[in-house]
Amino acid sequence: MTLLAVERIKLFSTRSPYWCSALALILGVGLTAIIAGTTENGQMSIGLTQFGSSQLALAVVLVMSALAVTTEYRFSTIRATFLAVPNRISALVAKTVVVAFIAGVLGEIIAFGSWALAKVMSPTSDLAINTGAEWRHVAGVGLLFGIGAILAMAVGILVRQTAGAVAILLVWNMLLEGLIGIIPKVGVKIQAWLPFQNANHFLALGGADAAEQPGAGIDFKLSQWGSLAYFAGIAVALLVVALIVAKRRDA
């Protein structure tokens, strides 16, 4: 518990968590406000309320998570951390737990904040959360953000440089996985096993909005909860590799 408290204090002693959290809220909830404001009253759906959460807000959370560790390497404060806690794995796992928890809570705030704002702006729309799929689509955002934070922390530990880690995360999430789909014959098959595509599959609501949701047209081999487990497995596996590398190399 002491390590967790220390990592929480260290994280919030910098400005990046505050700025990134604010930006994620603005992008996630703000995009919902724009959609609700430009959509005819009564035509909003559960799927549209979360349009900004799984893409733009997630990208900011990935950046925030990577900064949590690369900033320490940049200013060499990680050396003081490892001197105070000789067990490097314990220190890095504590940091990852703190960042993942904050990312998960932020995801839930954005998801339910977007949904509540849509209900206020479009009162005649049917935005009641009744089915399991609808609960997964909204409440699942926090799970997705938490796992994404673990993956981003792993990349940050491996790369150690802010620019490199952020570039890898954003290009992979927002560009590369989508471009792979244009490879003739095998592109869509490869996409079915890519991490962020499976993350999107977990949140997919189906129904009338299915064609507009990320991952539409991909023949996923796993169930939606299976896709979440697969995404989590990749994040944890990458983190294990990062911890092993961090233990063996110089700080």
Rank of each mutant, 00 (worst) to 15 (best):
E40N: 09
G47S: 08
A199H: 01
I129P: 03
A57P: 02
S76F: 14
V97G: 02
G142Y: 08
L175V: 13
N200R: 03
G206Y: 03
V141K: 01
G37A: 06
A133E: 09
G207Q: 07
L31E: 14
L238Q: 00
L25R: 00
A154V: 15
A210Y: 02
E108Q: 13
A103Y: 04
Q197K: 14
G28P: 04
T70K: 01
E40C: 06
I26E: 10
V241P: 12
S114M: 03
A242V: 11
E7L: 09
L106K: 01
E134S: 12
G233R: 04
V188T: 11
V186A: 13
G164T: 06
L62P: 04
E134K: 15
G156P: 05
L127I: 09
D209A: 12
G206I: 15
H201L: 09
S54D: 06
G181H: 04
F196L: 11
V240T: 13
E108W: 06
N130A: 15
V240L: 11
L25S: 03
G30V: 05
I182L: 10
Q161P: 00
K119D: 06
L83K: 02
N41L: 11
W225M: 11
S65T: 02
I129A: 12
E40P: 07
A216Q: 08
M174L: 14
S16R: 05
T38A: 12
A152D: 03
M121C: 08
L31Y: 03
A116L: 12
V240F: 09
N173F: 08
L117A: 14
A192L: 05
G107K: 02
K189Q: 15
L176W: 14
L27Q: 01
G187C: 01
A199L: 10
L117P: 06
L158D: 01
K221E: 13
S76D: 10
K119H: 07
S90T: 06
A237V: 13
I182A: 02
V241R: 04
V188I: 11
L48F: 08
A237C: 14
A210T: 10
T39I: 01
M1H: 11
W135E: 06
Q161A: 10
I34H: 02
I109M: 08
M44S: 10
G132A: 13
S45P: 15
I46M: 06
E40H: 07
V63T: 13
M64W: 00
A246P: 04
G207I: 05
G226C: 03
A94Y: 01
A163W: 09
M174N: 00
A94C: 11
I180Y: 15
F231L: 12
L158T: 09
I147L: 07
E40T: 15
V63A: 10
N130W: 01
I150Y: 15
L83D: 10
A208G: 07
L170F: 13
F231A: 01
A242S: 12
A118F: 13
S76M: 09
V155T: 09
A216V: 04
V188R: 07
G140F: 00
W115C: 04
